[in-house]
Structure formats: C-alpha cells, structure tokens
Design a protein around this nucleic acid. Structure first.
Length: 255
DNA sequence: ATGTCGTGTTTGACACGA
C-alpha cells in the first residue's frame, strides 16, 4: 500500500502531471494540497477514469485539500473540529482501516508576523485534535505540506530565512511526534540534502536550494509495516512543475 | 537580486500569497 502527499499548487494546472504520475506510480492513497479551486471545479470524472475516488475541500484561489484513493474513503472530516477557519486546510478519511489526515499547514510568512501567530495557534489546535484522533484510530497517517523543516539537515545550508526552520515551528513539529507519530522518511537511511520544495525563483531547483517540508507521519502500530519512504523528484523536472515534489511511503499491507 | 508562479481583479497591469 502506497500513501503519497503532493502539494500540486493548482490542481487545474497540474492535472496532466497528476494523471501521468498516478499512472506511473499507482499510489493507493494520495493527499493533495493547494488545489486552488472550488469544489464544483474539482476534476472528479478525470480522476475516476484514472481509477481514483476523491474527497475534497476546496475554495477559490487559495488552499484546498483532497484525498484520492483506489478504495472508498469513509468517515470524512473536513477542517479541525471546533476551529473556526475559512481556510480549507484539513481533510481526513479512513481508507482500508487507516485514518488518513491530509493537511495544508499554514505558511506563516515571517516569524513574528500575524500570519505566524495564526500558524502557531493552528498547529496547537491540530495537535490537540490529532491526539483525539489517535485514540479513535490507532492506525493513523498525518501527511501533507507542513511548511516546517524539522531539523537542520532538512534545510539547505544556505537557507537564511527563519520561517519554516524556526525553533517554535520545530517544537510544534516535535509535539506532533510526541503524540506517538514517526517521520516515515527518517525511518530509513536517506541520502543527504533531500528536499521536497524549491522556490520557483533563484533557479532554486537547479541548485537544490530547497527544504524538506512535506511529510508523512505514521503512528506506532504502522511502524512494523513501513517498507520505504522517498521523495519523487521526477514531476519537479517536467515543464511547468509544482514547486513541491511528492513524497511516498510504502506499507506492507495488502489492498 | 521585489528574482517565479498561480489566481484574481480595480483586467492586457497589478495585487496577493507563497
């Protein structure tokens, strides 16, 4: 069973990339972020033709999340319960007995800004909710664009901005791990300087000037099932790519 | 190096978010 996350930065623009990638990689579950389209514009039929069901929560221009799956997605939850938020950042569903939470975490813009305060309070609300979800669903995957590079090795050495690498953000990431989750990528030996996002500017991708901010966290009962986890840079090399590359975890599980 | 994208509107130029 392969579970993937990909910030597509406009599903409308990236649909051809996505369909090609689904055909090539055949993931069982795909969490998408930054759809940037309203629900009525979601490409339900194109994805169904590719063999995927979809649940989604979108809005005009910004944000928007979806879970694609070969099997049915059950018990769909949109947004963090109890959190007033117009920004469509969270969708959760149960697929084949695994609770999948797909998140487009707040960017935060700059440490100390109003948006940063929103990021930190949003992270606190998410953490409290995921704690409850874990009690209901021991087999849980929390994945998406976290907009946090957890450790120094997850940021290019020349990264100077504080946002995405600040201590409060990293502490919030560790608080999620402390719920009993593990960063699937770090369960395995990995090459150095593996990132999942590169700014469109400054020829960042060519220079590998990136951050590892897209993550797949898995709960303890799933640990024995984890086979591998990797970043797939192939779609980032195409014409008109998303600024993010997909991340995939493979679980030993029959679907 | 206010650099590139995607989307939207106050639309063929600029604002915003990332």
């Amino acid at each position: 069973m392969k579970i993937a996350t990909w910030n597509v930065n406009s599903l409308k623009v990236r649909l051809p990339h996505l369909l090609d990638w689904l055909a090539a990689e055949s993931p069982d579950v795909v969490c998408l972020q930054e759809l940037k389209l309203e629900d009525k514009a979601f490409p339900v039929e194109e994805l169904a033709a590719a063999g995927y069901k979809a649940v989604f929560s979108g809005q005009k221009t910004y944000n928007g999340v979806a879970i694609l799956s070969k099997l049915d997605a059950r018990d769909v939850q949109i947004g963090i319960p109890g959190l007033e938020d117009e920004q469509r950042r969270i969708i959760a569903a149960t697929v084949d007995g695994v609770r999948v939470i797909c998140g487009y975490f707040v960017n935060g813009q700059a440490v100390g800004s109003e948006k940063f305060a929103y990021k930190m309070s949003w992270l606190a609300a998410l953490t409290a909710w995921v704690r409850e979800e874990l009690q209901q669903h021991p087999q849980l995957v929390l994945t998406g664009d976290f907009n946090i590079a957890p450790e120094a090795r997850d940021a290019h050495p020349d990264w100077k901005d504080e946002i995405h690498v600040s201590e409060p953000e990293r502490a919030a990431f560790r608080a999620l791990l402390a719920l009993g989750l593990s960063d699937a990528f770090r369960l395995f030996e990995q090459p150095e300087k593996i990132y999942s996002w590169w700014d469109y500017r400054m020829m960042a991708f060519r220079r590998n000037f990136g951050l590892r901010i897209d993550h797949i966290l898995i709960s303890a009962p799933l640990l024995p099932q984890a086979l591998r986890c990797w970043v797939d840079k192939a779609p980032r090399k195409l014409e008109r790519p998303s600024d993010h590359a997909p991340v995939i975890v493979e679980l030993k599980r029959t679907v």
